[in-house]
Amino acid sequence: MGFRQFFNKLKGPAPAPASVPPPTSIRELLFGDLPSAQWPAADSEVRGQEPWKWFAAAQQARAQGDTAAAEQALRQVLTTPKLESRQYLQAWQALRELGVAPPSETAKQVLGVVVEVGLEQGLDLLAAYADGSARYYNYSGAGVVWENPDDSLAPHIGALRAAGQRVADRIGPWEEARPAAPGPGQVRLNLLTPSGLHFGQAPFNTLWEDEMGGPVLVAAQQLMQALIAKHEQVTENRG
C-alpha cells in the first residue's frame, strides 16, 4: 500500500479525551511556535505549574519591559529536564522574539518533524518528536496519539528525525510567520529546531522523488504504519 493510501486508512474515533480541541487547533499546537503572549493563555489553569509558570513569568516580565527577567524565566524551561520537545521549542520561539539566538551547536537540531498532506477531503498530519512521542491526525478527526509509553516506536521516530535532520542541515530557517496548511495535492515537511521552522513543500510525486524529501517521506510512511498497527491493536483489545 502506498504512502498516500495510508493517509486515508485510519478510521474510527480518535483515542483521545472528548475535550480534545478541533483539528485546526490541534495543528496549531504541533509546532511549538505560538506567539509568547499566547503560551500559556491568560485564563489557562496550568499557569501556576511547571513549566508553564516560567512562560507566564516571561509574559509578565516582558509586559513590564524587563527583557532580562523574561529571558531568565525562559531559560528555566530550557534547563528543566524531561519536558516535551514542544515546550523547548516554545521556549526558543519566545527567546527569538526577545532577540536571543540559540547557540550554533544546537540551533539546527531537529526536535520535531511534522508532515502535512493536503487532500481533497482535508488535511492529514503526522508528527514525531525528540521526546519519543508521535501522533497522527486524519482529516476525518480520527487519530493516534503516542506519548512514549515504551520504546517500541523509537526506531521509527528516530529514523524520521534523522531524515529530517539531513534536510535541515542543508536549508535555512523560514524567516516569516508559519504558512497556512498546504492545499490539496501538496505535501509539506516541517522541521522544528531551536532556530525556527525549516520546511520544504511540493506535490507528492515531486517530493517523493527528491533526494532529500524522499527519505523523509519513506520514514514517515514507516512510522505511520507502526502507529496504525498500534491503533488497530488497541481497538482489537478493546473489542
Rank of each mutant, 00 (worst) to 15 (best):
Q5H: 13
F6T: 01
N8H: 14
K9M: 09
K9F: 13
L10K: 07
K11A: 12
G12I: 05
G12H: 03
A14S: 12
P15S: 07
P17L: 14
V20T: 15
P22R: 14
P23H: 13
S25G: 03
L30F: 09
L34D: 03
S36Q: 04
W39G: 00
W39T: 06
P40A: 01
D43G: 01
V46T: 09
R47T: 08
A57H: 03
Q59T: 11
Q60M: 08
R62F: 01
Q64Y: 00
G65P: 06
A69Q: 15
A73Q: 02
A73N: 10
L74K: 09
R75C: 04
L78P: 01
Q87P: 00
Y88S: 02
A91R: 09
W92Q: 01
Q93E: 06
Q93C: 11
R96T: 07
R96S: 04
R96V: 08
A101W: 01
P102S: 08
K108M: 00
K108Y: 08
V115L: 10
V115C: 01
E116Y: 00
L119Y: 08
L119C: 01
L119V: 04
E120G: 12
Q121V: 10
A127L: 04
A134P: 01
A134Y: 07
R135L: 13
Y136I: 00
N138E: 08
N138Q: 14
G141L: 06
G141H: 08
G143F: 01
V144C: 02
V144D: 06
W146Y: 15
W146I: 05
E147M: 13
E147D: 13
N148A: 15
S152H: 10
A154D: 13
A154E: 12
P155H: 12
I157P: 08
I157R: 11
I157A: 05
R166M: 06
A168F: 12
R170S: 11
I171S: 10
G172I: 02
P173D: 00
W174Y: 13
A180N: 12
A181W: 05
G185M: 08
Q186K: 14
Q186R: 15
R188Y: 08
L191C: 05
L191N: 11
P194E: 10
P194R: 12
F199Y: 15
F199R: 10
F199L: 10
G200N: 03
G200F: 02
A202E: 10
W208F: 08
E209D: 14
E211W: 09
V216H: 11
A219S: 13
L227Y: 06
L227Q: 07
A229P: 00
E232M: 12
N237G: 13
G239T: 12
G239C: 00
